[in-house]
Nucleic acid binder design. Sequence first.
DNA 1: GCACAACGCTACATTATCCGTAGCAAGACG
DNA 2: CGTCTTGCTACGGATAATGTAGCGTTGTGC
Lengths: 109, 109
Amino acid sequence: MAKQAASRDRRVRGSRTGRPIMALLDLLGRRWSLRILWELRDAPLTSRALRAACDEASPTVLQARLDELREAGFVELGEAGGYGLTPLGQELCETFMPLHRFAERWRKI
Amino acid sequence: MAKQAASRDRRVRGSRTGRPIMALLDLLGRRWSLRILWELRDAPLTSRALRAACDEASPTVLQARLDELREAGFVELGEAGGYGLTPLGQELCETFMPLHRFAERWRKI
DNA sequence: GCACAACGCTACATTATCCGTAGCAAGACG
DNA sequence: CGTCTTGCTACGGATAATGTAGCGTTGTGC
């Protein structure tokens, strides 16, 4: 697998400009990516608990997204088992945490 | 089309909890959604210009995303032509604008 | 009026991606 | 040993995205 070989400047789908923001938007714009970060926001979860939190999403995609997020350095697999955010992942999560408040106001419109 | 009939509490893929944050994460977690918002961040674009900005993505998906984002109230089609962000869309865009700075730091890791 | 170009938008066949279910190997516990 | 749970994978069917082409409409210049 060339999965772990590539670095941050790897080819990303739909964006071959090399601009990191595009790579990030591409990564986060895949199914379940944002949701996974969101569900891990305040505590690590086992793969199965994460699956339950994500409405029993298919383990195939979840595993793919976890691999990508891990390779990006946002998520890590603790030695005691269970997926958690890295410090970098925490930071990223806090970056779009205001989305929560926005979503609440959005509903009311 | 039942597209414009549904409101914010419509069924969204992968998230049937009704929590608005889930609906939002689901909407933004589709291909090109984040990218479209990003490309419209400071100026409206025509559909073709937007397509060019999005690496010549297929018009089929772009149109689908634009419809969804329009129905969500984030994007609008100006009467003079061209897609632009609504005030709400501007607000959403600013919400995850720190992502840009984060992406720049992320590359260096 | 009449080409001509750009607009928003759509059709259609191919390809990639996701879903749902089942199940693997490895480790912990009894 | 048997039975848990862990992370992870296989596989076939369903869904979504791609790439190319083109529609109808609206200006604009001649």
